[in-house]
């Protein structure tokens, strides 16, 4: 099939993005159990950061390779190919890649719109006995609390519970949720990626707990008591997608109380990981503009294109 130059360039970008994303996502999915185990042994905020970065790695790296290597190589080595045949398989891959990206952007936009609507209609203090204490919204997050929660918690517990939600705001957890929603899906059977999402959400709660108590035993006990009291109020009301709730996952309650009662010292992210990540990024940025890299990428693209 013959397609115009710009459309062909778009196809090259979308198909390369899809294939690279799939490859990186498969690697991350396979490494997920190990990464989650390592993250759980680190300080909660470092573990959450590691898992979040790992989740962003496949699309991020794919985007960088497409922008720094694939697109420039096509522009440089085929500047005036006015008419060129494109294989059907390549076109299909490009279409699938585009559809997945469009779906992800749609999902994120829809969540953002729903969250905005929720915040517009919802007062800060809800006249209800439901266990609601959450931070909703992305750019200007707002605390929402129900009269029931205010009545159940004493002053110290309420303060530390509010500090927990404020900690989510400081860590921009709702913005991170939005970014996770904007990551294109790859294969429905990739359990590893879903398990990273779940582990990140869990560790973000732990990190908010740690930041809320700030090493104080009194605040730890108050937050543990607040969690149990809110859990006694019954199942949590459905929250918008871009909100963090005090009782996000009732199944994690026991573990959270354990951590608050017996905090264990845990290390930061190993320095070697940070150094090797930076070295990899540096190597990639040094390699990308080299003519040899662009030529090799072009050969590969030609193979795919036809």
């Amino acid at each position: 099939m013959t397609v115009p130059y710009l459309l062909r360039l778009l196809c090259v970008c979308m198909a390369s993005f899809f294939l690279l994303h799939l490859t990186f996502a498969l690697a991350v999915s396979a490494a997920a159990p190990l990464a989650i185990r390592r993250a759980e042994r680190m300080r909660a905020s470092a573990g959450a950061r590691l898992l979040f970065l790992l989740r962003l790695l496949p699309p991020g790296l794919a985007l960088v390779v497409v922008a720094a290597i694939c697109a420039p190589s096509y522009l440089w080595l085929e500047p005036d190919a006015s008419a060129e045949e494109v294989g059907l398989i390549f076109l299909t891959v490009a279409l699938v890649g585009s559809a997945l990206c469009a779906m992800a952007i749609g999902r994120a936009l829809s969540a953002a719109v729903r969250s905005r609507r929720y915040l517009r209609d919802c007062p800060r203090l809800i006249e209800s006995n439901a266990p609601i204490l959450m931070l909703a919204g992305v750019l200007r997050p707002r605390l929402v609390v129900s009269r029931g929660v205010m009545g159940v918690l004493d002053h110290e517990q309420l303060v530390v519970a509010l500090r927990h939600e404020w900690a989510h705001g400081v860590a921009h957890d709702n913005l991170k949720r939005l970014l996770l929603l904007a990551i294109p899906g790859v294969l429905p059977c990739m359990r590893g990626l879903r398990s990273i999402d779940r582990a990140w959400a869990r560790m973000a709660e732990w990190a908010a707990d740690d930041r809320a108590v700030g090493g104080s035993s009194n605040r730890s006990l108050a937050l543990a008591a607040a969690l149990v009291r809110v859990a006694r109020m019954g199942p949590a009301a459905p929250a918008p997608a871009l909100a963090t709730s005090l009782m996000a996952d009732p199944c994690d309650l026991e573990k959270r109380v354990d951590r608050l009662l017996d905090p264990a010292p845990s290390p930061e992210m190993p320095r070697a990981w940070v150094v090797s990540g930076a070295a990899f990024a540096l190597a990639l940025s040094a390699m990308a503009p080299q003519p040899a890299t662009l030529r090799a990428a072009h050969r590969l693209l030609e193979l795919l294109l036809h």
């Binding site: 006990l221 543990a224 309650l253 026991e254 009662l261």
Partner: peptide, 17 residues
């Protein structure tokens, strides 16, 4: 039962403190 058990542990920890 789990919530009762957690509440008991919190009370014991507070007494210890």
């Amino acid at each position: 039962a789990l919530l009762d058990q957690l509440e008991r542990r919190i009370r014991i920890k507070r007494k210890e403190l």
